[in-house]
Amino acid sequence: MRQKFLWLILFALFLPINLWALTAEEIMKKSQAAFLYSGKDFKARIQMKLISSGGQQRIRELTMLRKNYGELGGEQKYFIYFFQPADVRNMALMINKFPKKDDDRWLFIPAINMVRRIAAQDKRSSFVGSDFTYEDVSGRDIEDDKYELVKEETFGGKDCFVIKSMPKGAGEDYSSKLSWIDKATFLPIKEEYQDKRDELYKVFTADEIKDIKGFPTVVKRSMRNVQTGHRTEVLFLKSDYDLNVEDSLFSERFLKNPPRKWVE
């Protein structure tokens, strides 16, 4: 009994040491796994509000399906079907995301019943005109940044690591990013992007987190460009994991004619 108690104490002592031992890069890896790789697959009905500094709103409504292939941080496939606005209704976008190389992207244009590959070199380009980039949707290669654990602090009532990420290559739209990573869930609670002149540029916040099938999920988030005043608010209206999304969904056939059960 006494021996067991000692083991427990040892174990308890060891836990925080273990956490302390996580490098900044490992924290970001765990964060990406929690934020963008949870479950075998994932489905959400997503509503995006693009709000200009003058308050004018544009709506994007879509269903997003994701399936993981390989290890965490590895290849993923995305299927995105648009409901709104009217000029993109029934359009569908398929992305094969590969770490360390360009994505494959295909777009289906219903008016002429055409599937076309689209050039996708810039992962930092805007996703459907919003303040989020393709990388914000599907993740950035961990190897593309250098990381530094700046501090630990309580933010929004949560114990957080504060990590600074700096792109290794030139030519990115930001020079550094500060991320507040919740120690309990490893989800990013807030991120601040600094531009090339080291001025605050974009701010990401996770505004609501729900537990779905045991996976903490950011169901409300926003990205604000503090320099232009434009912001994008995103609601995950329906989210679910481990639905056994078939591999065959990610095909030209279903891009042109998506099965209702997956896009509804």
Binding site: I118, A120, D122, S125, S126
Partner: peptide
């Protein structure tokens, strides 16, 4: 040949 020169 099609290429994204820069964003958008």
């Amino acid at each position: 040949y099609q290429r994204q020169i820069k964003e958008d």
